[in-house]
Amino acid sequence: MTGKTFKFVSGLLLLHLFFITLSSSAYAAEAAPVASESSSTFLGIPFPIALIICVAILFLLIGRVISLRSAVKSTEKGSEGKQLTGLALKWHYIKSTINPIFIVLAILTILTGFTFVDWYNRAQDLGTQVGYAPEQPIKFNHKIHAGQYGIQCQYCHTGVEKSKQANIPSVNICMNCHKAIKSGPQYGSEELAKLEAAYKNNTPIRWVRVHNLPDHVYFNHAQHVVAGKVKCEQCHGKVQEMERVVQASTLEMGWCINCHREAHIDSDNAYYTSTYDFVKKHKTYTVAQMGGLECAKCHY
């Protein structure tokens, strides 16, 4: 290998390393707030394992080829005219027939391929805002309300069973309790004073919306909670353990579709049994089988 080629190859390798580190760190930063679970896969196998397997297969294959050819050409002689056998023969064969640049390039190609698959996978999650946990005008703590005191979600989010929106509670709902409870365990009366001021001065509170869907998506809470019997935490995570609400799910279309493929309809609901005669017989229909993947179920 000439010096020039060596420089070129090692330079490429370094560049790769740089990109991989960069993208990994960017990804780590993106995913930091949530308990990170590696979601990037290649053919269904976690990415690092897939990488190791592929490189291993490559080396195995090369080794196999070499041993086969060396067996055939067992009469090959070394540079000193000595009959070569065993490992020495193999090494000689590698040196004489296979261009090392080819091997490096092969490894590079594989690495590049993996890098792009990795990037593609990570790009899927870009802009999905998983882990989005904006600061709210009042530091409302779900851990205390939903966790410690076990208040039902529906007590405050009144629309969840009847409307498209679950509703951020209006101040009068807060005041049901906070007319009496004037200070809390965490911030004393500091945060509650803001609530009371809003109530007294009739100035609405501008909460920051955590869960956002694009305008062209129609999502209905009542459909999922009442008709679909989906539990709140299935999409919103363990809110009772969150001090500040964090977006737990990606809320992207693939995520919706996956659930629609797996979740079963409530086959006891008289709407389904009366509309679809087969639901009574076999009770295991998924949402997707009932047309839950069709465009106009969510986009209109």
Binding site: Q129, G159, S163, S170, V171, Y199, W207, V208
Partner: peptide, 25 residues
Amino acid sequence: AACSRSPVKNVVPYINKPVEIDPGV
């Protein structure tokens, strides 16, 4: 453009929600 985060959206609930109004219905 790809780097930008989605804009911050606000939700402004009523102070006193009229009984008959459910947002979304």
